[in-house]
Amino acid sequence: MSVPRAGLVPFDEIVHLVGNEEDLVACVDTRVTGPAPACVLFILQGDSAYYLVDMLLGRQSGETTEMGEMERSTLTEVGNILTGSFLAAFAQMTQLKFIPEVPALALDMLGAVLTTALISSGYFSEQVLVIETTLFNEHDSISGHFFLVPQEGALKTILKAVGLSS
């Protein structure tokens, strides 16, 4: 995982942090409750998603061509585990408690998936605060993105916790 970047990003540009609107991606959306409610999005490029499924289900590389029930649940579980470690690291940094809910998966166009996740988590402005971390493994050619999208008010709690606000 890379060092996180944070910033206020216009809606349209968030998509381009990951790729293009019509790229196939897998997105695991996990709502988080606690003192700083947020939504964590874990986004994997389509080819990385297929690669991971091959690897985890003990298949030959390139063997998976369809994303059925089993493949989707594998991806959700990967997202769940990785989101868990992402949140654990973030909790240690902020000393805040983050309680993840049951994750949901979407496997479709990046633009469609990302904007829907942001809107349904309560983002109605043209700008969104994101904390972005990339997951990159050169050896296994897997690349993924995490976005932590705090709900209104939660941002203040997070900034305060890391000593960036009075």
């Binding site: 997105c27 959306d29 709502r31 809910e101 049951v102 949901a104 998966l105 979407a106 479709d108 469609a112 998936v113 829907t116 996740a117 809107i119 349904s120 988590s121 309560g122």
Partner: peptide, 17 residues
Amino acid sequence: GAQMFNFTGKNGMLNIG
């Protein structure tokens, strides 16, 4: 107007599509 995620929760915003 699609519903991209299959949440099991009860969030009113989910039917935004």
